[in-house]
Amino acid sequence: MGGRKFYDIDIAPYVLPADIEEDDRLHQQHFALKYICGGNYTAPIHDLIKPGSKILDLGCGPGQWTLEMAQEFPQADIYGIDINANFPTTVKPLNSHFIVGNITEGLPWEDNYFDFIWIRYLFVGIMDADWQNLYREIRRVLKPGGILEHHECDGLTVNPGPKFRKILNHFEEAFISRDLSFRLAGELNERITMAGFEDPQQSYISVAIGRQGGKIGEIWAANLKDGSLAMKPWIAELTGLTEEEYDSIIQYIFDHEIFEHDDYHNHHIVWARKIQ
């Protein structure tokens, strides 16, 4: 659609394209979030990860997090799984392993296999009805004492201007049409606890959008703009806007409106243990 490759809705509800341009955006997003969070994880895993330990990146995308963790923990095995095989297959650390699979259809590992499991920004591709089954599967393949760490962006930008607020309403309606939860980030703690994890630790980081957030704020704004434009082929049709009107609104929001308001996102983090 619109010159971009998307998933068939019957295969995956993922709202963003599945192509090289999207991989570039995800790489940019990774490095921004790594800086914002002070690293690739926040849970206390250094005493947990030992020689022979196994780490899983669910929905690994192009695999940057997986590759970096393989370098940081060379004596552990790091696995990435994604429905799209856009990750490296040849030039990669020997302890990194990539698998093609739909994680909502079950995880292809035995019980008590992983020491640490990681999720980031899958609210754009996992249907609301599938989350509890996925959390239960995660708990199944996680070892007793193992840790799940889940990062999600609050889809509700704080202090948006009038055009941004209107387009966000359109985005939420579009997500709901695919049974995706635009508000998943604020529900992580409750959902993870319901799946049987214990002692969840919850935090969030506010990320300013635009130059008021310094260089990272500018990178974040550019990333949001690219993501918004990438969804145009299917969201514009749902909103009743022409593609030209949609482009014009997104350009105005990220080139002008965000500089007139103190817009920011809340990046939510929850980590929890499987005790037994």
Rank of each mutant, 00 (worst) to 15 (best):
I20T: 13
I20K: 15
E22V: 02
E22F: 05
D23N: 15
L26W: 02
H27S: 12
H27G: 06
Q28E: 13
Q28F: 01
Q29D: 11
H30T: 00
F31W: 14
F31I: 01
A32F: 03
L33F: 13
L33T: 03
L33M: 13
K34C: 09
I36C: 10
I36E: 14
I36S: 05
C37N: 12
G39K: 06
N40R: 10
Y41S: 12
T42M: 15
T42S: 15
A43R: 10
A43D: 06
P44H: 10
P44Q: 11
P44M: 11
I45W: 13
H46W: 05
H46M: 10
L48G: 08
I49M: 01
K50H: 07
P51K: 05
P51C: 13
P51N: 10
S53R: 11
S53K: 12
I55W: 12
L56Y: 07
C60Q: 03
G61I: 00
G61V: 01
P62Q: 10
G63R: 05
Q64F: 01
Q64Y: 05
W65M: 05
T66R: 03
L67P: 03
E68L: 11
A70L: 06
A70W: 12
Q71T: 10
Q75K: 12
A76H: 05
A76F: 07
I78Q: 08
I78E: 09
Y79A: 07
G80L: 02
I81Q: 02
I81T: 02
D82H: 03
D82T: 04
D82N: 11
I83Y: 01
A85L: 03
N86R: 14
N86G: 15
F87E: 09
F87T: 08
F87H: 08
F87N: 03
T89A: 00
T90V: 15
T90D: 08
K92F: 09
K92H: 06
P93G: 03
L94Y: 10
L94F: 06
S96F: 07
H97M: 05
H97F: 14
F98S: 00
N102G: 02
N102E: 08
I103R: 00
I103W: 00
T104M: 04
T104F: 03
E105H: 09
E105G: 03
L107F: 02
L107R: 01
P108V: 08
P108F: 06
W109L: 06
W109M: 09
E110A: 11
D111V: 01
D111L: 08
D111W: 06
D111S: 12
N112H: 12
Y113C: 10
Y113L: 07
Y113G: 00
D115Q: 09
D115T: 12
I117D: 04
I119A: 08
Y121M: 09
Y121S: 11
L122M: 14
L122D: 04
L122R: 01
L122N: 10
F123I: 04
F123S: 15
F123D: 04
V124Y: 06
V124Q: 08
V124G: 13
M127R: 15
M127Y: 01
M127E: 15
D128Q: 14
D128M: 04
D128V: 00
A129Y: 02
D130N: 14
